[in-house]
Design a protein around this nucleic acid. Structure first.
Lengths: 230, 230
DNA sequence: CGAAATCCTGACCAATTGGTCAAGATTGCC
DNA sequence: GGCAATCTTGACCAATTGGTCAGGATTTCG
């Protein structure tokens, strides 16, 4: 399987990783700018549809400069994906044996909805990669992600065994949460069109969080978690 | 806005309109073969990633022949989309005022899961189009699809008003069903990787249908519909 | 049969794209 | 200041791609 950080090319000297130049303040800032632009363009057009020229334009610099920092389009895409994967499993810390199931699930759902709202492009790039066969992140899915799911599924099944939540398929429950939350990033054009909105705003995302939480908690036979009321 | 398909209805004169040639047995069969190949390639690579050469190869004919039947890649893509949209809203006939909410929802969910299983590529092409901004189907989303959703939402809200199901956001409930079911087509590589399967088989899809049905029905405060038992 | 309509296809082309390069500009450090 | 490392960029290139076309093959039908 291909690695996200591509192995060294044919460069004779310098043991530095290919695709990445020296670590300087200027370089770090430029790489950040390029990565942000790349995420947006990759999200909108997909890997094949995105052109390095378009990414460079979005980042406000000449194409050759982009290729100076990230040797190839493939390497740039890999760097964007690596950033996203780092973000991907955040927010589920609450899902652990001692926790309250309803509160932990709600917190995780809210975290995922929050990312769909604030980083929709990350979700879209990830979705595009998976839909395209996940060629570049197959290892991650079968390794890190699978382990993560197994771990969380074990916690959920523990809760079920203790009678603290209804019996459901733990893995599919996790898939359900992903599907329900990421849908609002990945399918935003459809949602806005059907709702007749220009875009999804804060109140709408609050409604989404409540709806998804209610659906999932009810599906798990859980009442909404106790909460401080005004 | 671009039309998805040439006005097939009334075109008396033999003017070779771009996109569609005359309607003959040979032509019909060839168009079908090309459309099937195109759906597969567009699903896997997206619009930009798909090449007419690859589609022609998949269909087993020279590229020029493909361009004979569908003038441009854009026209071919539009024809594929038109086929998909026709399929898209099927299965919700049961959602009407007189029906039993639980049975109607279960039937719709099963229909959607069925399509995710048997026509995953249709789902993937649709997903790619929406994620890419829905440039070509914006009219459909804001028009036909929106009307459809409003109609079904009204039925659901009627059921809620009659106390026949719990109060939930009807539109987001529909989005939820779409997200939960189409997820298994669009994100199949992720699901298989995490589950450690080679592919999703019949029994797994049965499990999916049960899981999604249980989740949605519980979320609507509904017991599983009465069913004939052996 | 014969000719008109339809179908098929190898060869070709213009435009786009990812990537290179050499030369110059800037920065960091002694 | 001076020098090396880093950065910037316009010009350029080879490969790919969507699409065209002329002419031949096949089918349809009076």
């Amino acid at each position: 399987m291909t690695e996200l950080r591509e192995p060294a090319g044919g460069d004779p000297d310098a043991g530095a990783e290919a695709g990445s130049r020296a670590d300087t303040p200027v370089g770090r800032q430029m790489r950040g700018r390029i990565l942000a632009a790349a995420e947006a363009v990759f999200a909108e057009r997909g890997f094949d549809g995105a052109t390095t020229a378009a990414i460079a334009r979005a980042a406000g610099l000449p194409k050759a400069n982009l290729h100076y920092y990230f040797g190839t389009k493939e390497a740039l895409y890999g760097a964007v994906l690596a950033d996203i994967l780092e973000l991907w499993l955040a927010g589920a810390d609450g899902i652990q044996p001692g926790a309250d199931p309803a509160a932990a699930l709600e917190a995780y759902i809210r975290e995922k909805v929050y990312w769909s709202r604030t980083r929709p492009n990350a979700s879209r790039v990830f979705a595009g990669e998976v839909q395209g066969g996940a060629r570049r992140i197959g290892d991650y899915l079968q390794g890190h992600l699978r382990d993560w799911v197994e771990g969380k599924a074990a916690v959920l099944e523990g809760w079920m065994a203790e009678g603290r939540m209804a019996r459901v398929d733990a893995r599919h429950l996790i898939f359900s949460i992903w599907a329900l939350t990421q849908h609002y990033a990945d399918f935003a054009p459809q949602v806005t069109a059907v709702l007749g909105r220009e875009r999804l705003d804060g109140p709408e995302f609050e409604r989404i969080a409540r709806h998804v939480t209610a659906l999932v908690l009810a599906g798990c036979g859980l009442a909404p978690p106790a909460r401080a009321k005004p």
